[in-house]
């Protein structure tokens, strides 16, 4: 072991959430495009999974603030370090904001937020169709922004892994890779 890596819990959370969030984005755009019975099936996964992501994101942010992250390589250009930092802030922001927006917009619609048979979340806003309109638009637009940031993040991770080969990818890799042997 030469490089510092994220702790196993942090790595586990990262890959678990990556799968959940990607699924959520595909479920989101898939469900709003369909009028078939799949719509209800997808919506009924979207809501509880979104709230699960909120809980996991808060846990993960707590861990990140307490345990920090391995330092980026000293040789990384300043612009890339800044981009890395900003994109990570955006990712944390979005994984907390998106579920809150979903919850808030359904509250403003006055629409019961049923996660599971009989498990209902309380509204976090009073019914207000104007607020609903803004929140609904934000949930949609930030959803697409989220996907774009994830693509950029994925591209950068692969760039570190395949082109720079500087240990940045290995720090979050689910299992120790060759670079560290």
């Amino acid at each position: 072991m030469t490089a510092a890596r994220f702790s196993p819990v942090q790595r586990l959370l990262h890959w678990l959430m990556a799968a959940c969030i990607l699924a959520m984005l595909f479920i989101g755009v898939g469900m709003v495009s369909t009028i078939s019975p799949r719509y209800l099936a997808l919506v009924s996964i979207h809501k509880p999974l979104g709230i699960a992501i909120l809980l996991l994101a808060l846990l993960r942010l707590g861990l990140r603030l307490r345990r920090g992250a391995p330092p980026l390589p000293a040789g990384l250009p300043a612009a890339m370090k800044l981009a890395a930092h900003l994109s990570h802030v955006a990712l944390y922001g979005l994984m907390i904001a998106m579920p809150l927006l979903g919850w808030a917009m359904l509250s403003a619609e006055g629409y019961p937020i049923v996660l599971w048979q009989g498990l209902r979340l309380p509204p976090i806003l009073p019914q207000d169709i104007g607020a609903y309109a803004l929140l609904r638009q934000a949930h949609g637009l930030l959803g697409y922004a989220f996907f774009a940031v994830i693509l950029a993040h994925l591209g950068a991770a692969l760039f570190h892994a395949l082109v720079r080969r500087d240990g940045v990818f290995a720090a979050m890799a689910p299992v120790a890779g060759r670079a560290e042997e």
Partner: peptide, 19 residues
């Protein structure tokens, strides 16, 4: 802590893969 970089000498294939 620092991991020595071993940049790929022939990055084109990797870049195509990433794209």
């Amino acid at each position: 802590m620092e991991q020595p970089s071993r940049p790929s000498r022939r990055p084109l294939g990797s870049l195509v893969l990433i794209a």
